[in-house]
């Protein structure tokens, strides 16, 4: 049988217990938050890796990546060889007022030129100022953390797995019979 007033006492107990516990408030401007790994703060550009393949700009659902480039002709490396053309990046900008932080651009970049940075303090007072150009995006590259360690039971990365396989194969086959 429920005791009359038990619910009231329970309510008082809950609040009293909460009071004695540590509060959960983040003291943000004074104490910076500890963000989890792979936090999506801002997109950084490692422009040395960029080949202006335009995949990121085309895959972006919001069309918020602006890329300008021109072609340059590189003279032939060897005498009598062919001249090669090369893309040179003129402008790389991301409009963070449009960006929805889906990360597709980072996923599709074949040359590892785009990275997630946990940096999040780039609020502006004008929406136009949220379009950040390549120099700013390059600067954010310095804030990109090293990739976190894999989970203990995770699969090996593909490259490592392939290398292991090749090594095992090489070890299993007797030397000298290496046909091919």
């Amino acid at each position: 049988m429920p005791v009359p007033g038990a619910g009231l006492a329970k309510g008082l107990a809950v609040t009293l217990r909460t009071m004695t516990k540590k509060s959960v408030t983040d003291r943000y401007p004074d104490v910076l938050p500890e963000l989890p790994p792979r936090s999506r703060g801002v997109i950084a550009l490692f422009e040395e890796n960029c080949t202006v393949c335009m995949l990121c700009a085309r895959e972006c659902p919001d069309w918020c990546i602006y890329i300008d480039s021109h072609k340059e002709t590189v003279p032939a490396a060897t005498p009598g060889g062919r001249e090669r053309s090369r893309n040179v990046l003129d402008r790389f900008a991301i409009d963070f007022s449009l960006c929805m932080y889906c990360g597709i651009c980072i996923e599709v970049c074949p040359f590892d030129a785009l990275f997630w940075s946990p940096e999040f303090e780039y609020a502006e007072t004008d929406i136009l100022d949220l379009t950040h150009e390549r120099d700013k995006l390059r600067e954010w590259m310095w804030t990109v953390p090293a990739p976190p360690a894999l989970d203990p039971a995770a699969e090996e990365p593909k490259e490592v797995a392939a290398a292991h396989k090749a090594a095992e194969k090489a070890a299993a086959e007797p030397p000298g019979e290496d046909g091919a």
Binding site: T15, L16, T18, K21, S23
Partner: peptide, 10 residues
């Protein structure tokens, strides 16, 4: 202060 801490705030 008491109200805040009872609600897990500061």
């Amino acid at each position: 202060k008491v109200m805040a801490h009872m609600q897990g705030r500061l």
